[in-house]
Amino acid sequence: MFKQFADYLTFSLMGLVPGSRVGEALNFFIYDTLKIFFLLIVMIYLIGLVRVSLPVERVRAYLAGKHRLVGYFLGSVFGAITPFCSCSSIPVFLGFISAGIPVGMTMAFLLTSPLINEIAVILLLSLVGWKITLLYILIGLGVGIIGGLFLDAIKAERLLQGFARKVYEEGQHAHLETVEKKRITMMDRHHFAKRELAEVFGRIWIWVIIGVGVGAGLHGFVPDTWFETHLGAGQWWSVPVATLIGIPLYSNATAVIPVMESLIVKGLPLGTTLAFCMSTVAASIPEFVMLKQVMQWRLLAIVFVMLLTAFTVVGWALNAFS
């Protein structure tokens, strides 16, 4: 349906020649944008219906007092499925540690959150297939869990800012009042989902267009074997370089995944592509500036290096085995 419409628009209405660079790039752009918009609208609404019963307060109550090993895993998983805007990172961080949740478990939650969310998964599934989607999710969870474990192993709470450390110490004896459960009617769910759809879509549509636009540019203008020749799996340095390039390119999963599709199609090795995309999404400078409010520079630097190392190692491993 979208394919026919895109063909009609580019080749019939605008009279571009199939197979020409501009024609193919534009055709790809229209097709991808329409398909993604359609999927997003349907899925954000459906997920909103379910998600109304998972506010971050309940996640906190659930995580507090969980055994550590289970906690890292759950922290990561909840990071993936709980809705919260990145501007809430700091309140969430303090809220969690004030409830006695270890810093590492809290960071597992915060690290996974931008990497995996429903929008990323929808885009991945529709653009690169279920195998890479599954791989992406497992790596995202893995980085969150191992990162969390590592931060607790080095006692990261020592490196919090003064007031945050106090919050943490007081939290060790905190008793959380239980979160009351409210009855949620179908109508409540509908309203929540509608509001969520308007809000999320209003925020990300421009990113989809940018992402697909860059992807379409790559699709139409980069020769098919260019990446394979210049940045193939044989060049070991291409993975750390891709990870480093990803840092200043501050973006979110919505914009990066369409680009990722084009990179893979053009023969960039899977490991290099994933390393690049994940570092773009997870290691962003604005996010780190925000975390500076609660963390000392040393801890920030540790988290940063930890992420870069993780993405590089994952990239190498994937390139070696794929």
């Binding site: 506010p55 809430s88 309140p91 969430v92 004030s98």
Partner: peptide
């Protein structure tokens, strides 16, 4: 101010 926000027990802004 983050400390004041915390006092209300608010985690998502």
């Amino acid at each position: 101010d983050i400390a004041t926000i915390m006092k209300y027990g608010v985690m998502s802004t």
